[in-house]
């Protein structure tokens, strides 16, 4: 992660990271045999480290909400009868599903301000990029859910005199939602972890704070170990929750 950041971000902090790691005394002499773990430095800076968690969680939630709403619009466009809606929606989902998320973030950070003439803060950049990415994946989840509903349901709804939107709202989406929820859970867990990439553009979320501390304390080994533990502690219950959703909604069908 650090290597990646060091190569891609020409800012003061990461330059410092790449330089200082090489000269850090504890690492220079370290081997698996003699490395002395020193976790005290982590505990001393624990509040600082945890201060990034709020941003991580906030970014994940906001991206999920924004991406969820945008994704629904994209999904409806993709299943539209109108080619003029279908084609752009298809291009959008495929573009965002086939490029690395870090590239998307860099693109929004560097290119979008020039194209759109707006200046975004790091957090806003992260929010926009992640939301756009989530929307592409959510659109596919929605679409797959909607398409999985038996054609007979459509015909029964239309035969009753429903309009397409009544049919979607009352018949198709309520049924599709139980099939969408488990993959949405998977999407969420993956998004939560993906927020770490936002550290690359200097947003002070968990991963960024960890990198900052690692440089500041010369203790990357301990800092990144504990950071991994923090991600695990937060993500693992969510992952269990997703497994539960899969079981619950599978047995319902």
């Amino acid at each position: 992660m650090c290597q990646l950041a060091a190569q891609e971000i020409p800012d003061a902090l990461t330059l410092r990271v790449s330089l200082t790691y090489e000269t850090s005394p504890s690492l220079q002499e370290a081997t698996t045999v003699n490395y002395e773990w020193e976790f005290d430095v982590v505990w001393e800076n624990f509040p600082f480290l945890l201060s990034g968690v709020g941003t991580t969680v906030g970014l994940a939630i906001l991206s999920m909400l924004a991406g969820g709403v945008l994704g629904m619009a994209v999904a409806l466009a993709r299943i539209s009868r109108l080619r003029i809606l279908r084609v752009p929606a298809y291009c959008y989902t495929e573009l965002f599903r086939t490029t690395p998320i870090v590239v998307q973030i860099m693109w929004v950070y560097w290119v979008l301000p020039i194209l759109a003439g707006v200046t975004l803060s790091g957090f806003q950049t992260g929010l926009v990029a992640l939301s756009l990415n989530v929307a592409a994946f959510m659109a596919e989840i929605y679409r797959a859910g909607i398409m999985s509903i038996n054609r007979g349901q459509t015909e029964a709804s239309l035969a009753l005199g429903m309009t397409s939107s009544q049919m979607m709202r009352r018949i198709i989406i309520p049924q599709a939602i139980t099939r969408m929820i488990p993959p949405m859970g998977t999407m969420w867990v993956s998004l939560f972890k993906d927020t770490a990439i936002i550290s690359a553009i200097g947003v002070t979320e968990l991963m960024f704070q960890a990198q900052y501390l690692a440089v500041d304390t010369y203790r990357p080994v301990e800092i990144f170990t504990i950071t991994a533990v923090i991600y695990f502690v937060i993500t693992y219950p969510q992952s269990l929750g997703v497994n539960f959703l899969y079981k619950k909604f599978r047995t319902q069908e």
Partner: peptide, 30 residues
């Protein structure tokens, strides 16, 4: 289509609704 009822070969009641909700769905929504 409101004036033309149709029953199909395949069973396609709305599975997420009870029997009475199925029957009420047309009058309520449409």
């Amino acid at each position: 289509r409101r004036n033309i009822g149709m029953i199909f070969q395949h069973l396609n009641l709305f599975p997420h609704m009870t029997a009475i909700d199925n029957v009420m769905e047309g009058p309520r929504t449409v």
